[in-house]
Computed example of a mutant assay.
Amino acid sequence: MPELPEVETVRRTLNELVAGKTIDRVTVSLPRIIQRPAEPEQFADLLAGRTIVTVERRGKFLRLLLDGLTLVSHLRMEGRYGLYRSDEPVEKHTHVIFHFTDGTELRYKDVRQFGTMHVFLPGEELDSPPLNKLGLEPLDDSFTLESLRRLLGRRPGPIKPLLLNQTYVVGLGNIYVDEALFRAGIHPERPADSLEKDEWERLFRAIRDTLGRAVEAGGSSIKSYVNGQGEMGMFQHSLLVYGRKNEPCSRCGSAIEKTVLGGRGTHYCHTCQPPFRGKKGAPQTGARKAR
């Protein structure tokens, strides 16, 4: 699933491609993609004649701001947008087409068919599902060391699942949590309420640094992700632990290990990210080693 860096890259690309374009009509061939309004015909009627002003992002959601409406779109597992000429063949699994007045088309393709689209009045989307329960934006000015520590610092659970919880911090995803925890030298099973002040500082910097680097690299193309221009991300070439099971750690040379924590494959270095030991000295662990 595309995470924050990938969705941010798509946002930037889409903004360059479609901002200022006016929708002539909309074709919907898979109605369940449209979550709001209930009828795809009403969705098409609402968007016809609207101009796309800009494209923004909230967590892993795209927000297409039109004159008088906001379209919220989630790519889920395989969703992708592309701009085409109207005379180009429509590829298989293309479910929604925004026909522009200039003869181009923004096409939404989704092999897995899990993507969603919602239409709201401007501003209404931030107080309604699916955006109203999202947590801190890690690349926003509101995301500070203090806000992160205040939100998670008293929670007894393992730090990785907490960082993956979208109601706390949005958009990190499995790849970037593993990478940020490695950069911070924190074991993924470490209880959040056991972290010291300097560890919170390292974690905060690692989250911002990891995401910033990933955005600049266009995200990570681990599976099928490409941006709105069909280009792959390049950050996968800079990953330090994710997907590197049994490879030597770039810092100490120890073999990268993989466990399953909270149902998610989790990569870490046992030496650089030592497991937390409780008051009696016993390692605190709830993960199982991945085969």
Rank of each mutant, 00 (worst) to 15 (best):
V241G: 00
V241C: 11
V241S: 03
Y242S: 09
Y242G: 05
G243V: 01
R244C: 09
R244D: 09
R244M: 08
N246A: 13
E247G: 12
P248N: 08
P248M: 06
C249H: 05
C249L: 11
S250W: 06
R251I: 14
R251F: 06
S254G: 12
S254D: 14
A255K: 15
E257M: 14
E257A: 11
V260C: 09
L261D: 01
G263L: 14
G263Y: 06
R264P: 08
G265I: 09
G265C: 08
Y268A: 03
C269L: 11
C269M: 03
C269P: 02
C269V: 15
H270L: 14
T271F: 06
T271N: 10
T271R: 07
T271W: 05
C272N: 05
Q273K: 11
P274V: 09
P275R: 04
F276Q: 05
R277H: 09
R277Y: 04
G278N: 11
K279Q: 13
K279G: 09
K279F: 02
K279N: 08
K280D: 15
G281S: 05
G281P: 05
A282S: 11
A282R: 10
P283R: 07
P283E: 10
P283M: 11
T285D: 00
T285F: 00
G286C: 01
G286D: 00
